[in-house]
């Protein structure tokens, strides 16, 4: 058998490839070109046509500014806790129907108890059984909890990045959404987003987890690579393997290189258009020679927009990566970055 013949028809023909060529070549069709009509040129926009778009942008900005000003006045050193069932404890004391969780205090639930925390004016967090949660910050620009173990279900209706949860393996930063976050005894976390978008951050690594996606993170390895819950089973299993390989020092032996190459092959081959989310994250986590292959597959699934080049993506150009992420259907990264750089800091002033 000659692989060169399969590649470019050079060298000694592989009999099986040749047989398939002859057989399948009968399915080729010489189709006549359709009658093409020249495209109709669009008239340039009238001066008044963009006005509704500007009005919508202005209204959104007004809403955001109003919300941020309102939140600046909401300064409390505690959050209200409501008992849902069992006997949740705050600072080692059981609470009746309501209690107060002050800065630094722990809320602990046993296997039979649950509680709900009012996150200031911006949302609520249900603390599931067998969980330990600590209030770390309750000021207008930083609503922050720590989840040491157990599970929470968060519903947040604030502007992005006002609420976050620290776990032993990563920080989950809310972008306005509903999600479930679990932490096991070893400190590994599992994030499952129902609506909106959550980012996981640790040590300069970032994972964007949109609605319908899951992200597994192990302590010391930084945020894992997110994937959609409905992704092919083979992709999910291989991604878990690839993630652990990417988290470990790269082995130089042929065996471990082959395992890693095989795992990447499977992830690329099994990816659907929606799974470009996973590939987008892998672009920053693999070796340079692997990035080219990920770029190719991702470009096949979601073509890069104008101005985004292979060279830019491979060299880690953030603006180009964000522009490509804008095509993934998870909202505009360009907008989020603008928002949290320009607007959120105003809350802390």
């Amino acid at each position: 058998m000659n692989d060169n013949y399969l590649w470019d028809k050079s060298g000694k023909p592989d009999p099986e490839v040749e047989r398939l060529e002859n057989l399948l070549g009968t399915l080729r069709e010489d189709l006549p070109a359709p009658a093409f009509e020249p495209p109709v040129h669009r008239f340039p926009l009238r001066w008044w046509q963009p006005l509704p778009r500007f009005a919508a942008i202005a209204a959104t900005l007004l809403l955001v500014v109003s919300a941020t000003l309102l939140l600046r006045f909401e300064q409390r050193a505690f959050w209200v806790v409501t008992r849902v069932e069992g006997a949740p404890r705050v600072a080692s004391r059981p609470i009746s129907d309501h209690g107060r969780l002050r800065l630094g205090e722990w809320l602990v639930t046993d296997s039979a108890s649950r509680a709900v925390i009012d996150v200031g004016l911006i949302g609520e967090v249900e603390v599931k059984p067998d969980s330990r949660v600590q209030l770390l910050s309750a000021n207008a620009s930083d609503h922050r909890l720590a989840l040491q173990q157990g599970a929470i279900f968060a519903r947040i209706w604030a502007p992005p990045r006002l609420f976050s949860v620290q776990t032993p393996s990563a920080n989950a930063i809310d972008m306005g959404c509903v999600y479930r976050l679990e932490v096991d005894a070893a400190g590994a976390s599992l994030l499952h987003v129902e609506t909106g978008l959550v980012t996981l951050e640790r040590n300069g690594r970032e994972s964007l987890v949109p609605a319908g996606a899951i992200c597994l993170t192990r302590p010391g390895a930084g945020p894992g690579t997110p994937y959609y819950e409905d992704a092919p089973e083979k992709l999910k299993q291989t991604l878990a393997q690839l993630d652990s390989l990417l988290g470990a020092p790269q082995g130089n032996d042929q065996g471990s290189m082959n395992v890693r190459a095989g795992a990447l092959d499977t992830v690329l081959a099994e990816s659907r258009k929606r799974d470009a989310l996973t590939l987008w994250h892998l672009l920053t986590r693999v070796a340079p020679e692997e990035k080219n292959r990920i770029y190719d597959r991702m470009a096949q699934l979601v073509p890069p927009p104008a101005g985004v080049t292979r060279e830019g993506i491979l060299s880690g150009n953030v603006a180009m990566r964000d522009a490509w992420a804008d095509q993934l259907g998870i909202g505009s990264m360009t907008w989020w970055r603008f928002f949290w750089k320009k607007t959120v800091p105003l809350l802390g002033k």
């Binding site: 399969l6 590649w7 070549g25 080729r28 292959r293 597959r297 470009a299």
Partner: peptide
Amino acid sequence: RLVEGLTGPEIAERTGLTAASVRVNLHRGM
């Protein structure tokens, strides 16, 4: 490759994929 009769380099050029990706896909697919 097998139906349309394009070579690997032609597939890469027309689809915008790198030659390395096409070659791996051809080899593993076959």
